[in-house]
Design a protein around this nucleic acid. Structure first.
Lengths: 348, 348
DNA sequence: TATTAGCACTCTCATGCTGAGAGTGCTAAT
DNA sequence: ATTAGCACTCTCAGCATGAGAGTGCTAATA
């Protein structure tokens, strides 16, 4: 991450503006900067530098004679420099305490994955006052543990799919009523002994290939197995956990009703969020999208801080914070990063 | 439901005010009433009557020289009279069409109960522009179909609980690692043959009694069965389905940010809603809470229209609409009632 | 006696004006 | 290269104004 040009002084002032604005959303003026952060310069000098920063696109003025406000580009510069510091290791925090508590809590609900993700999402949003988002492990990447079929009504069967991660999915599927429970068990046994330990995705491919290669010779039961399995794993409507709209309303950034509408709209449709976070699902580390950088139209006025969590080095899902561009990036990045690591550790 | 005193004229005018205000939230004045609804009276007469209605508590003025606005009591009177008409059968609607569509849709997702409830909630909120709420069948009232245990890891077992309604709950529980899968099957068999067809609640009681009565002689395995079963059915954190906050924001009633905060707060904590709707869960027909009538503090400025849905005459859960007191009660009541009936029919 | 026309009164809301406050940009001095 | 000084610009709160809407009361009317 290259911290572009900008001499020492300009940088200092840019940081001052960003930090001040993050902590209180008032446009910041030259006099204020010299007072609050005692560099050696006079307001006039600061004014000149600010004018330069504005020309370069890092700051902007709401109107002549208001102070300066950071632009998306300004935030970007700030964030890049934070990330630099962070990677150099000089980044530890007042929140260490809560993290320990959180980790303990996680351990307790490890078993109930659904519950666990809710807990994570809520904690995220409550602690940050931004919107917390967690995507569960993508079905295709989870590792198949076993499947079982339980007869339900005459022609209905409940398929229970267990993954190594402890995710359980179930679905009622219709089947040929002539299949006995014994048949169902045989099918389950076949799938379990043959495929346990591989990812859902791999299995899907293997089954398709197999069905194609041995088309003619195919045992009828196994043919059925494939069909049923395919029905059973079409669970894929991965849910997204989102929480914190209420808390976000208390931020001054959303004191305007139309802003709230905007953000509600953005998070209402979970597909939008999924679309955004999916792009990250194979990458590592913390990612930050600031305002316009956001690939999703609905979020051009918001910022997203996201990171993947992993199980044994395979990225599984994403956790993220969504907030105003005037976000406390330092805090958000720390939280997202730490919690992602917590989860990863819990999964191993 | 007694439509108290109030002579014909007063009633007409009250209805006029309520209806006008519901369709557009502007205080309604005497002149307007005489123009829009051509009764035979002059504005002056209407003014006198309005003054009376205000004394009686049915109307109020935002300030001298604004028009009148209905009070909670005013809405209550209006709603009671609607309900009267409805019971007399003279209440059918422009929404008959959508209802047919909706019923068809329901049939298709009958199998996936979770999905079905989401669908209902969303439809409710989308069609009404209010907040749709559905509570799933209360666990205790559902009928036990069968339970199964699947070994998961050394000391962990997944319990799968099926109810007659098609609700599936699953939970990972810890067990004595010495229990073999055979043992587990025996336990499941025992529970399934013994208790299938009774409600979760009844079974709980029976088990407790039995354990108490035959304490000493008790087969170890059955003792385990009880323990496991008790763990397995402690699923009871019944979820509530809520949707429509975004749509409600577009109502003029919530153009003020603090109003939105209020309503968000009210629906954020689902326990609040549960508390409210639980009171209805044994009753029949449509219930309306208007503003202050609401037993829950957080909803003193909102109205709730709710009805229970049933399976074979046993009330199962509640569906409801939450909106401003300035609600289109006629529409809301019709929707809630009809959809509740739809669901009941689907369950039979 | 019940209704209504007429009118004075009240309150809101949009508009426009004003002065204080904050912050800028430019110029000239250091 | 920096800074003091100053004129300029823009916002915002406060205040006055007048139009508009709607009321309550009184006196006239059917």
């Amino acid at each position: 991450m290259v911290i572009e040009f900008l001499d020492e002084r300009s940088r200092q002032i840019l940081y001052a503006v960003v930090q001040s604005y993050i902590s209180k959303p008032d446009p910041v003026g030259s006099r204020f900067v010299t007072k609050k952060y005692s560099f050696g310069f006079s307001p006039a000098t600061v004014r000149n530098i600010m004018a330069d920063l504005e020309d370069l696109g890092f700051l902007s003025q709401p109107h002549t004679s208001a102070g300066r406000v950071p632009t998306d580009k300004g935030y970007r510069f700030y964030v890049d420099s934070i990330m630099g510091v962070r990677e150099a290791g000089g980044f530890d925090s007042e929140w260490g305490d809560f993290v320990r508590q959180f980790a303990k809590k996680l351990e307790n609900i490890r078993n109930d994955v659904n519950n666990m993700f809710w807990e994570v999402t809520n904690s995220l949003s409550m602690m940050s006052n931004y919107i917390g988002v967690v995507t569960p492990p993508r079905a295709e990447k989870t590792i198949f543990n076993r499947i079982d079929f339980i007869r339900y009504k005459e022609d209905k069967v409940v398929a229970i799919l267990l993954t190594e991660e402890g995710v359980i999915k179930n679905k009622i599927i219709g089947v040929d009523p002539r299949l006995t429970q014994d048949d169902l068990n045989r099918i389950a046994d076949y799938l379990n002994t043959e495929y346990s330990g591989q990812t859902i995705d791999e299995i899907k491919n293997l089954l398709v290939k197999k069905a194609y290669r041995e088309k003619a010779l195919w045992d009828k039961l196994i043919a059925k197995a494939i069909k049923i399995y395919e029905q059973a794993i079409s669970f894929t409507e991965d849910d997204v956990y989102v929480s914190g709209l209420y808390d976000v309303m208390n931020l001054p950034d959303f004191s305007d009703i139309s802003k709230i509408r905007e953000i509600s709209k953005a998070i209402k449709d979970k597909h939008i969020i999924l679309k955004l976070l999916d792009e990250l699902s194979d990458s590592e580390g913390v990612h930050v999208f600031i305002g316009k950088e956001n690939p999703v139209e609905e979020m051009k006025n918001l910022s997203v801080v996201a990171s993947t969590y992993k199980e044994k080095e395979r990225p599984m899902g994403v956790i993220a914070l969504i907030g105003p561009t005037r976000m406390d990036y330092s805090k958000a990045i720390y939280m997202v990063d730490t919690i992602a690591k917590c989860i990863s550790r819990t999964f191993d």
